[in-house]
């Protein structure tokens, strides 16, 4: 847990923390910002990786797996999250199922597509209104602590969680790496 000196790319940190928390099932809907993470997950035999047709399925697969004793995480981008309120509000939240979501944030800080910029504004109000714990990671140094503690809290409290990856983390040139 000490390699937060900027040497490790964020997606490698995420993989390490998932393993430390025995999260070995990953469902995702493709996203360009998450591409390196997704590629690395596919390449790592530790993980079972499923890419379904839709985000609701991705959430339901992880929910079912949790009830059967296996830990998972769902990867998506902001617009995909916007398809989820019903599944979250009628399955994950009332049944108290710890579905951990990792969402790459589009729609801010240089977005070129107005639809993404608008749908992005729905994400935090939805999370707030149905009481889902969420935290946005902007700093590379925060990745190991935030991802680890969000996952641990989700499973300890049987609550869903949303880890939001800001463009400040995923797009900003790495000052630390250049030093």
């Amino acid at each position: 847990m000490s390699r937060d000196d900027g040497a490790e790319p964020w997606h490698e940190t995420v993989i390490r923390v998932l393993k430390e928390n025995e999260v070995d099932l990953v469902t995702y809907i493709p996203d360009n910002v998450l591409r390196e993470l997704i590629d690395a997950l596919h390449a790592d035999p530790y993980f079972t990786v499923i890419c379904p047709a839709r985000e609701e399925e991705a959430v339901a697969i992880v929910a079912g797996a949790y009830m059967a004793g296996r830990r998972g995480i769902v990867l998506m981008q902001t617009s995909g999250f916007a398809t989820l309120p019903n599944a979250l509000a009628s399955l994950v939240v009332p049944f108290q199922i710890p579905v951990v979501m990792m969402i790459s944030e589009r729609g801010i800080l240089g977005e070129f597509q107005i639809g993404q910029a608008i749908v992005c504004k729905t994400m935090r109000p939805v999370l707030q209104s149905i009481g889902i714990e969420h935290h946005t990671i902007e700093e590379h140094d925060h990745v190991p602590f935030v991802v680890d503690s969000m996952i641990r809290q989700a499973f300890a409290t049987r609550s869903p969680a949303a880890i939001i990856l800001s463009p400040l983390l995923t797009k900003r040139p790495r000052a630390g790496a250049a030093q």
Partner: peptide
């Protein structure tokens, strides 16, 4: 398992159970 909402998700939930066990 009795689903109370999330219309259409019985098969994906079952898929998750099947993959885990």
């Amino acid at each position: 398992f009795y689903m109370l909402g999330s219309m259409g998700l019985a098969a994906p939930i079952a898929l998750g159970v099947a993959v885990a066990q």
